[in-house]
Each structure stands twice: as C-alpha cells, then as structure tokens.
Nucleic acid binder design. Sequence first.
DNA 1: TAAAACTACGCAATCGTTCTCGAAATTTTT
DNA 2: AAAAATTTCGAGAACGATTGCGTAGTTTTA
Lengths: 340, 340
Amino acid sequence: MYRAATIKQIAEALSVSISTVSRALSDSHEVSAETKRVVREYARKINYHSNPIAVSLKKGRSNSIGVLLSDVASSFFSQVINGIESIAYEKGYHVIITQSHDSYEREVTNIGHLASRSVDGILMSMSSQTTNYDHVIGLHNRGLPVVFFDRIINEMETFKVTTDNFKSAFEATELLIKKGYRNIGHLTNAAQLSITIERLNGYKAALETHHIPYREQLVKCCNHGGRDHEEIEGVINELLADELKTDALLITSDRISTAAMRILNHLGKADSLTIIGFSNSDVIDLLSPKISFIRQNAFEMGQIAAGMLIKLIESKYPVYEFETKLLDGELHWRGQSKIK
Amino acid sequence: MYRAATIKQIAEALSVSISTVSRALSDSHEVSAETKRVVREYARKINYHSNPIAVSLKKGRSNSIGVLLSDVASSFFSQVINGIESIAYEKGYHVIITQSHDSYEREVTNIGHLASRSVDGILMSMSSQTTNYDHVIGLHNRGLPVVFFDRIINEMETFKVTTDNFKSAFEATELLIKKGYRNIGHLTNAAQLSITIERLNGYKAALETHHIPYREQLVKCCNHGGRDHEEIEGVINELLADELKTDALLITSDRISTAAMRILNHLGKADSLTIIGFSNSDVIDLLSPKISFIRQNAFEMGQIAAGMLIKLIESKYPVYEFETKLLDGELHWRGQSKIK
DNA sequence: TAAAACTACGCAATCGTTCTCGAAATTTTT
DNA sequence: AAAAATTTCGAGAACGATTGCGTAGTTTTA
C-alpha cells in the first residue's frame, strides 16, 4: 500500500525535531526564516501533504459537513447541493451527502452515521415522513451545529434558510385569481412539512384577500410526494369531479406536477386545468401541457445554508442569536387567462 | 464543545484495560463472554460510538470514497450517485462528491483534495475538457484505487463501467434508418471523450451497414456540452441548411437535446427533425416536441462502479486483472415513421 | 556587567483507537 | 502431578499531527 510522506520523515531527513517541522509548515514565528525555507523546500520536494485525518483527530474537527436531504436526483436539491459545494469548497470543507428518500428510518440512521463525530456540522432538509425530531434535537443539544434549509422545523432554534413559501404561494394563487380562475385546487406535500403549511397558508390568504371561499376538498396532500403514481391519479380524479369545477392547480413540487401532467395527458384533459407549480426543472419550458412555475433560488439557498453552518462551526463562542432567512421565489406565467 | 464517549471512559468505569474494551467491542475471541456482555452493555448505556477518525488514523483507511463527475445537477449523474450511495452505504463507506463542471482545472484540484489521503479510492467520470491524464495516472501509480464510469479513458488499466455506447448509438441510428430517415445528423459532446468516440463509431457503423454514405457535415461536436446556447444554435442552423436535407438527429446528452429542442421550437421547426437522444430525464415523456430516447442504466452503473472500487480497496493483494463492464441502454421509440 | 527578555528549537503529552507481546490463571494433556 | 496448551487480560507502542513547556544561546535593558 502507498504511504504518503509524514513530518517525521522530514524531521529525520533534515535532523530537526518533529515540532520544528510542524511549526515551520504552519508558519509559526517560533522558527527561523532559514529553517522554514529548508523545511518547506524539502516538504515540497518529497510531495508532502499533511494528513487531514491526523489533524482531525488532534484538533477534534474533521473539516467536513454532512448534508441530509431526501433525494439528490431532483433538480431543486441538486442545485442546492451545487450551492453548498461552492461555499464548502471555498472554505476548505468536504461535503458528505446522504439521502433519506423521505424515509424516517433512513433519516435517523443517516444522521447517526454523520454525527458519530465524522462531520463538524449538518445541513438538513426534513424527510416528509418525519414527525418526531428527537434524533436531530438530541444531536443539536449535545453541541453539533445544525442548519436547516428548505424543509425546516420550528422545534429547534438555529439558523434556517427557506423560500418565502407563504409569499410565493400567495402570489401564485393571486395570479391565478387575476387571470380569472376561481376554483383553484392545491396539490401539495405531506401535511406536517413546513413548506406545506406555509404554502397552504399563502394559498388560503390569497383566496381570502379576494373573497373566494376556501374549500377543503380542493386541497390534497400527497404523502408520497409524487413517488406514488396511483396516489396522484386518485387525487386528480377527485379534483376533476364535475361538482368541484376545478379550473386551476397550484402544485408544490416538480415530482407532483409532472405526475399530474402525465395523468392529465393520459386522460386527454391536458387543457382543462391551468397549472402553476413550484419547479426548478431546467426543461420546464419544454413541458407539455404548458405550466407556469415558481422558481426557487436553490443555488443561493445552498450557499447561504453552508455559509451559516460554517459560521456556526467556526464560531469561538456559543451562538444564541439565530436567523431564519427567507428567499424570494420567482413567478413565471406561461398560461392563458380564463375566457370570461 | 461536546465530547463523545471513548473506550478509555468505559475502561475506567469498568476497571478493565483499554485493550480489553477495544477487543470486547470488536468481538474478539480473546475476551470472555461475560466481559463482552458487561462492556457492551455499558457502551450502549453511555451511547458510545467508535470514533471513525481515530480508527482511520490507526488503520490507514478512511472508509470513504471520492466521486469526481462533471455536474450533480444532471439526471444521469444524480442517478449514478444514487447507485453509488446505495452500495457505499451498505458497505460502510462515506461518499464525498466533487464536481468538475467540465473544467480541467477543477478536476485537477478536486482530485488532489480527495487524494491527500482522506479517501480510500476514487470514482471518476472525465471532464469533457480534459485531455491530459497525468493527475489521475500519477495518483493511481502511487497506489490509490481508481474506477472509471461513463466517461472512461484507455490510458489507464483499471476497472471501468460504461454504457455500451457503440451498440446504443448503432441501434438508435439503425432504428431511424428503418423508420425511413436517411439524412441523420449527429450532435455530440467533446470529441476526445470516450462516449463521444464510441457513439460516433456506432452511428457510422449503422450507416455503413445500411449503405448510407457517411457525411462529416452532419456530425457536430458541442464542446460546451449544451451549456452554451449559442453554440447549439449555430450548429442547429448549419444542420438545417437545405442542401443537407437533415431529417433526423441522434443527440448524445440531455443538455444538448433540450437545448436543440428549445431552438427548434423557437424556429417553429419542431416537427422538421426527428430526434433520438441519450436521456435519463424523468420527464422525457412530457417534452415537446416528442423525442425518442436511449435510457442508460445510471443507477446500476453507480452500483457497479462502487462495487468495483470497494473490491479494489479491500483486496488484500494487488489486482492485475481488470474488467470493463458494458451496460445495455434501453431504446424507446416515440417518433413517427417518415412518410415515404 | 549582571539581569532580563527574546529567539529558536527539542521533549513529551495528547487525540482515540488498534494491535503486538507478555504473562497470570485456568484447563488439558501426558 | 508435572508439563503443555489455552484462555483472558493488561501494558505500551504505534498512527501523524499539534502544542505547552523547558532551555540553551543570543540580544536587549538597566
């Protein structure tokens, strides 16, 4: 097996102590300029790189951060990862990504894995199946920095970043109303998720503002987040019932939107519903039927979350002032006004 | 700062030696059943978890693997990552993902980062800008296991997994021919990439088999891989020149396909070209214009690559027998026959 | 010129494990 | 009953770095 160079080898070769080599390489003032020169020259010559694992052990830090999200194979999350990575890279941190696939069990085991001291902090977006937060709260109480992004929770005080979901849902719903739609359905994620609640509230508020009565039958939570085709199929069929007169849809995720579109296409009713969906797909403009969308600032969300976490990790003193940052979504209209 | 429990604490609490605790926890035969019981019970009680960093330092292994690919925000690569993760998780490895964004410089610095002894092996798909392989070959020669997936290179002997690109391109081209198309353009990636070469060869072979002359003007390498809209626009315009009579397109990536479709839509010529694209998009069926596609077994590719790498890492003896595994692509036809 | 301060370096402990040796205590063999 | 083998455990040296402390040798201060 290949063994890399160590400071011990340098020390022996140059007949100085290990401490001196260590100090020379870290540019300590306790070593002369000449010695530094010699040590560095030799280190470079034998291609020395400090062993991050040894440093981690000694310093009690690993210079890596763990990310826990539901699925990397999603345009939104992969853009977030991109943002996280850009900041982490800049600050010298490794990023370890784990996926919950929206399963509570996987979330618990993954966070345990990450936490067993191999990461300095965790970036987390809740699984849609999670209703008990002890696994996170416990770690956080024991001193592990945690920052939430996207799907946040109120049960913990820390830094959080998410889209201004209320506002985005409000604006989208209001836009539909202004375009003449009155019977707007709402297809959304698991009911306990923060994003679900906030968006539902935005939807309700827009209806109220425009004096449209809220009807519970028009709101459908998809607990499998669009993974289960039949769930969506059932829901769409319910919404298409004549008595509801559904004429538009506000959908909260790419996966649900595309599932719904697929079903509408199949039913030959693609044009019977106008859709606005939360979407970060890069081919949204090519989809048929046409769909309007709210784009989240996923990349920026990743950057901000990573920045917050690293700030927490590197803070010398305990932090008690936290912030929940809300990012604006961008609403893009590609639909038609309802003919009056 | 929070400090986790150590075997030393257990040893002191139970008045046994550190060695005994270590052995008890690793189920060594050198410790009595009773002692094991006591130690484990106490370990569980104080929520002990072994410190992976200390173990890494001692064993000279980190139990993590590095992944180097161009972009996670791609359906193909994110599916590969999923596959990698599933195997790595199972075998107790962490996955560290880095992105080259198809830049040679980033590839070099990233692989350097990964290699400075923090990973046990590397899973790699070449950046499209890379033409010099010294950075990988050097590390490999020094003993770091490397496995290539998707975009492989011939300059290194090791395990490799990729789609049978020749076959897939051959089948796709042949299918177009059988449907009556004779002037098939080929939009592809950077010329030196393995996937580019193999697919181009498949394309050529299909033409030859069916006695259609190969025309160089119909083949366009997109060096920016679809990232540069104008590059694709120029290329599409060239292919649409009357004298070429282009009637179909074989495209090698999602990004290029969607860029091309966007341009065709904009030109109002969406129906003038029949497209088959290599695509792992999960909304391919919703895209307009309709596009036929070759789906790669991305998840399986990730699994196989990770399996190969871990096998290499854990092998007690140097490995000299390597394999290049080719996966079948699945061809899906959604187009129309050409009216004769 | 003696005392104080500073420079430049080495020694050794430490981080949390694993693992080689050696050695009691017990059991088996002869 | 003595010798040999086995079981069970502890001491201590690694792994590769960082860092507090001690101390020659030199320079500055009083």
